Structures are given as structure tokens and as C-alpha cells.
Computed example of a mutant assay.
Amino acid sequence: MRVKKKAVWFLTLLSLAAVISVYYLSNPVTPFNGLAIFSDNSLKDTKISELASKTSKTTPVTTESHLFEEMRMELQNERSQLKETLTQKVASSQYSADEKNKYFDEIDAITKNESNEAMLEMLIRTLGYSDAFVRAEDDQIRVTVQANELSKEKANEIVYMVKKEFNEGKVVVDFQSETIN
């Protein structure tokens, strides 16, 4: 008995929709109500100190994680431009099939690299660092973590984690200070 591909896809999507429906019905999501935080009167008795009320000078508090965000954005822009160029080459008729396959493989490698970097950043944050930036290029993987100091044991732990994810390449671990500007 031969089943048509459309019927198989339809049944697959239908079963997926049923599973998702059951999940959401069994685990109701309560929406976040930001005003509920302030609904109790616990802040009513809070007083600002006289010193703070006399001085009108305000100091912005920023951390260097903005630097990490800027580095991520720059890297993402570079890679998206490279992907766009490669996509145009794949769509072009002036390249052979082998060249198009090579360009497509490069796009795939960039995408895999990006996902591995993001996963490593998340794993490094679970080690207790407030932020991390991972950049893998050529034969070098550079990891920058936000910490006051970085012990050799912690650096080795990061190197081990990176080596598990990226099997090849030289790993360099740096740290940025967590001090507030």
C-alpha cells in the first residue's frame, strides 16, 4: 500500500499540532503583568535618604556587556554580508554546479559556526559569568568573558568546554572587567 507524500505530511503536521495543543492546554501560560509587581504597598514606606534627595547629580550605570553586544552586532553584520554575497553567487548562472555547492557549503558552515558560538556563550554564562563572547575564525577560537579576574582553573574549564564543541583550533581565553563605569 503506497501512501502519498502529501497525506504523510498532512498527518505529520496534524499530529504536531495536536501535541502542541495538548502541551499548551496542560501547561497554561500566565501572562506577565508588570503592574502586579507594584500592586502591594511594600514600597509605600520606602524613603529616599536626605543625601540622595539633596544631590541632583545622576550617574549613569553601564557595564561593559554593551561592548559584547556591539561586538556581536558587528560580527553578525559581517557574516550576514558574507552570506548574502555567497547566496547571490549560488543564485547566479555564471558559476558551475561544483562552485555553487562549495558556496552553499560555506553558507552552511557559517550558520553552524554561529549556532555553536551562541551555544558556547550560553554554556559559559551557566558557569557563573555575567556575559561571554565567542568568535571562531580560521584556526582560532577567541573567548572573552566578563569577570573581575579569571583563574587558571576557570580558563581551563572554558578551554575544555570549547574543545568539546569545536574539535579543532587554538583556543584563546580573555576576560573583561566587570567594573561599573
Rank of each mutant, 00 (worst) to 15 (best):
R2F: 15
K4H: 14
K5P: 02
A7H: 13
V8T: 12
W9P: 10
W9E: 15
F10R: 07
F10W: 08
L11A: 12
L11Q: 08
T12L: 08
S15K: 11
L16I: 03
A17V: 02
A18K: 03
A18V: 02
V19N: 07
I20S: 08
S21F: 09
V22Q: 06
V22S: 11
S26Q: 04
P28V: 00
P31L: 11
G34A: 09
L35A: 12
L35I: 06
L35H: 08
F38G: 14
F38W: 14
F38T: 13
D40F: 03
N41H: 14
S42I: 04
L43Q: 06
K44W: 06
D45Q: 08
T46I: 13
I48N: 06
I48A: 05
E50C: 02
K54F: 10
T55F: 06
T55Q: 04
T59M: 02
T59C: 04
P60W: 11
P60A: 13
P60L: 09
T63F: 03
E64V: 12
E64A: 15
S65V: 14
H66P: 15
H66K: 15
F68C: 00
M73F: 13
M73D: 11
E74S: 10
L75N: 09
E78T: 09
L82H: 12
K83V: 13
T85I: 13
T85F: 11
L86V: 00
L86T: 01
Q88A: 11
K89Q: 09
A91S: 06
S92N: 10
S93N: 14
Y95K: 00
Y95E: 02
S96P: 01
A97I: 11
A97H: 01
D98V: 12
E99H: 08
E99D: 07
N101W: 10
K102G: 03
K102Q: 05
Y103S: 08
Y103F: 03
A109R: 09
A109I: 04
I110F: 04
T111L: 02
T111Y: 04
T111A: 02
T111C: 03
E114K: 06
S115D: 07
N116E: 11
E117Y: 03
M119V: 15
E121H: 02
R125C: 02
T126D: 11
L127E: 02
L127K: 04
Y129F: 12
A132H: 01
V134C: 03
A136Q: 10
D138V: 02
D139Y: 07
Q140S: 06
Q140N: 11
R142P: 09
T144M: 01
Q146R: 06
Q146L: 04
L150V: 01
L150W: 01
E153H: 01
K154M: 01
A155K: 06
I158S: 00
Y160F: 09
Y160E: 12
M161T: 06
M161S: 02
E165A: 09
V171G: 00
V172K: 14
V172T: 12
V173A: 01
D174S: 05
D174T: 07
T179M: 09
